[in-house]
């Protein structure tokens, strides 16, 4: 079943008198349980494509279906709710709420999803255990290393049980060891819990570990390779 389906997706930016076709006619589908990377050089349209799939940006042309629902027609608030329940975001710069502890950053998603308070600890603590964050729950983001912050960001992304995790260059700010550790963790979540991941990255470590690599160039899909597992 397709979690993501884009058809002839285009996003054109006006830059003075010139038009920049950041995404130019991309049609692709991402199936449930896939571990997919959008690869390509800077400016190839990876992040713009992720933003369109995540409902953060609106296409100039074409359509995006998420879990069978067309995103194009949704209002801003409907898109926000779609992101809350169906998409987990992992950003390059972690982007945790700086005044909330690691635990509260993750709990925040459950609260706005309306999950009863009594269930929070029961869902968060096992996840923290699995991500190696048990002893760091009460620390503020500023008291955590980059790798630890990105693990909290992963926990925040998956705690709401979304259909897909969109990760924009998640290892770009991490040192090599932390990056490998984080990738292994996400890969394990993919294998064991069937969490669907869609990355944008030009990091060879991410590309090596992915099941499917969609290469982009000049806003178009130039290659789409599914690896044998």
């Amino acid at each position: 079943m397709s979690i993501v389906l884009t058809t002839d997706l285009k996003r054109v930016y006006e830059s003075g008198a010139t038009e920049v076709k950041a995404v130019n006619g991309v049609s692709l589908s991402v199936e449930a349980g896939e571990f997919t990377v959008l690869a390509g050089p800077s400016g190839s349209g990876k992040t713009t494509l992720l933003n369109l799939i995540g409902g953060l940006d609106r296409p100039t042309n074409g359509s995006v279906h998420l879990d069978g629902e067309l995103l194009n027609d949704k209002s801003d608030d409907e898109l926000t709710r779609a992101r809350l329940f169906k998409i987990g975001f992992i950003f390059q710069a972690y982007n945790l709420v700086p005044v909330l502890s690691a635990y509260e950053n993750v709990q925040f998603i459950l609260q706005i999803q309306g999950v009863p308070d009594s269930e929070h600890a029961g869902r968060i603590m096992p996840l923290f255990e699995e991500l190696g964050l048990s002893g760091l729950a009460q620390r503020l983001p500023g008291e955590l290393s980059g790798g630890q912050q990105q693990r909290v960001a992963v926990a925040r992304a998956i705690i709401g049980r979304p259909s897909i995790i969109l990760a924009d260059e998640p290892t770009a700010n991490l040192d090599s060891e932390s990056a490998v550790s984080l990738l292994n963790l996400m890969h394990r979540l993919n294998l064991e819990q069937k969490v669907t991941f869609l990355f944008s990255s030009h990091d060879s470590k991410v590309i090596d570990i992915a099941q499917r690599v969609i290469s982009m160039r000049d806003g178009k899909v130039s290659d789409d390779i599914r690896k044998q597992q």
Binding site: R83, F91, V97
Partner: peptide, 16 residues
């Protein structure tokens, strides 16, 4: 501004 954008991205409505 960036922080508010992140909050919107992870699902916080403009009302909240």
């Amino acid at each position: 501004m960036h922080e508010f954008a992140v909050m919107q991205a992870i699902g916080l409505t403009r009302g909240l």
